[in-house]
């Protein structure tokens, strides 16, 4: 269980470092074309920053920053952006993820369309990976039952 937070030293250092870690994650996602990294790696870095927040502050205090429902929404929206870019290319008479077809609606040449298409796919993958990483961490560390949800589950079990 991750009810309790850490002590003041770890909390202070985490509070100082987490914004820079998230900024670096966004940098890795955006510069995935010509430096190591990309959607998956940037998503892992963003997820690691949120995991550090949960470790340092405990679930009770970090609940408002990392709500469980928002994580579900994020993972769905990320996969939707990825698959939507692919199917948009299908609609525009290309293959799946054939970014050059996006030039018709973006009003640019094929090279710029490929760059922008890859960027949108990476943003989607990053969002999905971040949300799924934090969800897996929450599931493993709490055994599937989040603190605060136990009473609700007992109530529903008694009613049934």
């Amino acid at each position: 269980m991750i009810y309790r937070g850490e002590d003041i030293i770890i909390r202070t250092i985490s509070r100082m470092l987490i914004p820079f870690i998230q900024l670096y994650g966004l940098y890795v996602i955006m510069h995935g074309h010509y430096s190591p990294g990309g959607g998956f790696q940037g998503g892992v870095i963003l997820g690691a920053s949120l995991i550090l927040l949960l470790l340092a502050y405990g679930y009770q205090d970090a609940k408002s920053r990392v709500p469980e429902k928002l994580l579900t929404v994020f993972s769905g929206v990320g996969v939707f952006i990825y698959a939507g870019t692919g199917f948009l290319c299908l609609v525009l008479l290309g293959n799946f993820l054939d970014y050059a077809m996006l030039a018709k609606i973006l009003h640019t040449d094929a090279a710029h369309a490929r760059s922008l298409g890859i960027l949108s796919v990476e943003i989607g993958v990053g969002m999905a990976v971040m949300a799924v990483m934090v969800s897996i961490f929450l599931d493993i560390s709490t055994g599937g039952v989040l603190p605060g949800e136990e009473e609700e589950k007992q109530k529903t079990a008694e009613e049934a």
Partner: peptide, 24 residues
């Protein structure tokens, strides 16, 4: 070096987070 610097930043970061997680 411009490639390997990015990798080593991530290495330092995951080392720190792993240490705190194992300690907890």
């Amino acid at each position: 070096v411009d490639m390997f610097v990015d990798i080593s930043i991530v290495y330092a970061l995951l080392n720190f987070i792993g240490c705190v997680a194992v300690a907890k």
